[in-house]
Nucleic acid binder design. Structure first.
Lengths: 244, 244
DNA sequence: CGTAAAATTGACTGACTTCAAATTCGGTGG
DNA sequence: CCACCGAATTTGAAGTCAGTCAATTTTACG
């Protein structure tokens, strides 16, 4: 029987080599599964979570809401992502996590993760790297929103999704599916949905991307990279290979 | 003799209670000191750092530069901050750290920190919390830049500095000094220096803040909080008290 | 299939940028 | 201690990118 936590173990193993005991320790983590529909909350800002949350299937996003009700999407999470080390380690969740599609999640008691992290240093390091890579992506998002114009922002985001989905084995960089509405793309880039629409239509008209439903086909990857000022260093794909 | 690492130990002790052995372990970390002038690089994007860097004295900032040369300031660091766990743990620095004022830094071999983190779980947890709080602040910055207008952004940032400096014992929330130029404030908020100037002048004219040199006096804290839509939860000040 | 959600489009507006010039500040060397 | 000079701040005028508002068309899914 395949353990439901396998995708997470594989992802962590991508950051640092885990031995059999490390993997066994991870596989033995207690958890409870739950299915959640689109828009459903996985973690709510202000909660005092006792569990960490792992995304087993589907897509989710992290977001914050300002006092005026504006929403900023902070990250998009793929299956296998430990969605909530951020929140569950701190006492009060400072942001929400919501389902983008139908998702299945595993809630793992935070105590069990912390113990394992310190019992098995390689697991601890892998978890650490995972949060560091999350942080690196967050910094690039800040830069994207703060310094690039609308077209660049969108192109950059679409390039990021392409590479992350490819790395996770969930698509190809030139053809993938991600269930984000234009309004959600807007909230992720600090734009309005109207303007996101105009930019997408432009990319479409220039034959750089081709859109059908929520599927994206990047016709001209080189051009897209150039428009989005995209450099994949910040994703730290291939970290393990680099570490020696 | 007072150990130069004391401010860091105090800060970490603010996240989780450290016992004598934890503190001794931290105090025994090997390090080399270095003085760096304003604008000098502490870590350069693209470096493969072998050391982590602790800010002993002065102010520093983290930044990324886009392919077009636009600069985004990602964080401002105060004395006592471990400025570079982010970068030094990953193999390639994905952003730079530069001195804002005359600073003194301590370079600590990353191996020594990693060993200590896993030998003494409390130290590991404290370091972990430290990066998590950094992450939380980063998320609020993203939200600030993505969703708030110019006035709100600036007011929010100035409120953040006020509380962080107060928490670090480096000023009072209603009166503090921070050596940021208006151009740097602009790069931190995704605005232009011209517009930052206009917003500051407005805050000034409304008698909400009073500026002299790089010192800021917040005359009307309540109003400032309201204008900046500021809620300090994300700073996780008093985390230890909340944790039990 | 029907209906609510999402995408699309147009006209108009405005917050912020750009460019350029004048003024003030601050640190350093004489 | 003061004079100097580059850096930082301040101000004005004009331009533009993206937002707002509102209506229409298309899509998705229960």
């Amino acid at each position: 029987m395949i353990n439901a936590l396998e995708p997470m173990i594989d992802k962590l193993n991508g950051w640092i080599e885990l031995d059999a005991a490390d993997r066994a320790g991870l596989a033995a983590l207690p958890y409870s599964r739950k299915k959640i529909g689109p828009h459903g909350y996985i973690v709510h800002e202000g909660d005092r979570p006792t569990h960490s949350c792992l995304l087993l299937r589907g897509f989710a996003y992290r977001q914050k809401t300002t006092g005026e009700g504006a929403r900023q999407i902070l990250a998009v999470q793929l299956a296998g992502d430990l969605v909530d080390l951020q929140n569950s380690m701190l006492r009060v969740a400072d942001h929400s996590v919501q389902a983008l599609s139908h998702v299945e999640v595993a809630y793992i008691p935070r105590g069990a993760i912390i113990s394992l992290a310190f019992d098995r240093p390689n697991v601890g390091k892998a978890l650490w790297y995972d949060t560091l890579v999350d942080g690196s992506i967050a910094r690039e998002w800040t830069t994207n929103i703060g310094q690039r114009d609308a077209r660049q922002r969108l192109a950059h985001l679409l390039c990021e999704f392409a590479l992350r989905l490819e790395a996770a084995g969930l698509g190809r960089r030139t053809e993938y599916e991600i269930p984000l509405t234009q309004e959600q793309l807007a909230d992720a880039t600090g734009l309005t949905s109207v303007h996101v629409n105009r930019c997408l239509r432009w990319l479409d008209g220039e034959h750089i991307v081709d859109r059908a439903h929520r599927a994206i086909r990047i016709i001209d990857w080189e051009r897209m990279v150039q428009i989005g000022d995209f450099d994949d260093t910040y994703l730290h794909i291939g970290l393990k290979r680099d570490q020696q």
